[in-house]
Design a protein around this nucleic acid. Sequence first.
DNA 1: ACATACTTGTACAACGATGAACAAAAAGCA
DNA 2: TGCTTTTTGTTCATCGTTGTACAAGTATGT
Lengths: 164, 164
Amino acid sequence: MNKKQATAEHPHFPWDHPRFRSWIAVARACQLMQQTLTRRLSHLDIKPPHLDILVNLYRFDGISQQELARKLLVGRSNMSMLLPQLEKRGLIERRGDARDKRVLRLSLTPAGRVLTEEAMEIQTALIDDSHRGAPIEDCIRIAESMERMIAILLEENGIDDRNR
Amino acid sequence: MNKKQATAEHPHFPWDHPRFRSWIAVARACQLMQQTLTRRLSHLDIKPPHLDILVNLYRFDGISQQELARKLLVGRSNMSMLLPQLEKRGLIERRGDARDKRVLRLSLTPAGRVLTEEAMEIQTALIDDSHRGAPIEDCIRIAESMERMIAILLEENGIDDRNR
DNA sequence: ACATACTTGTACAACGATGAACAAAAAGCA
DNA sequence: TGCTTTTTGTTCATCGTTGTACAAGTATGT
């Protein structure tokens, strides 16, 4: 019974598996959301990755590149590529830490704060639009499920992330 | 009351908004899932995008590049980049359609089918792992929510997709 | 039949993300 | 103190994804 023993709980094909189907739907929804957000943000000349950065600087002023990368679940090198762009556009500032000369402390400029607020309104509106008709209580249940998954996955990956 | 009138239903900051928080969790879970899947697939020398292609060829033999791109919600040019790689590795075949000389019909080779089955088992196992402890009924509810969102977003984007 | 519009796949340049290798600074330890 | 190890940020080559422009084939309309 090593393989191909299709039953109700262990279906033959992945796409007959409820959890599999559910996850595919989640992934596709995310993909579409990103694409739609990209379009709606285009007139501000930023993309979802930039917005993620800006929002985190909005919340956590003075954060370091390392901490930012960890929050966004991306590599440090990624921040090293994107942040100088935002800095040149006058949206953020990078100041060296006094005590620890390795770290760069990040903060929004006034212009960056204005742009971030504009972009966040667009994002919030998009989320509301796409959830139209979905009860808040469902969202909360989904959030709980997802946070459980995140915890599980973080535990698996979390150890030994030399380059994150 | 144009702005910054924080109430229970219309909080001041996006991250106090239940739907916003919920969606951020979904996005992060997706991101982690992709990263974890990338690692678990690495010994097969394929990445999530390749697996998406292979699974769809497994389900829909003889599909065209256009149809495949539409199912995956990516551009046609993307398929033009990835498919030749898989073809050179002997995992798929591309045969020109007899009636319509523009379209290339795609199918898995035996080697491709074997590799796809292996990879699908890894993916299914990962999904099961990460959902550990989550009732199937929750998954079904999540799937319904996501499919509703997908429909809404597709309607918004769907029209006039010249290049998809 | 012919001209026009659309569809299918490709080529290309631009961009975000990744991991590896590296330099500088800090922390830990002998 | 001096040595090693870790941490922080950068650089670089690579890869997936995108949109535009393009060529070839098909459909439409007169």
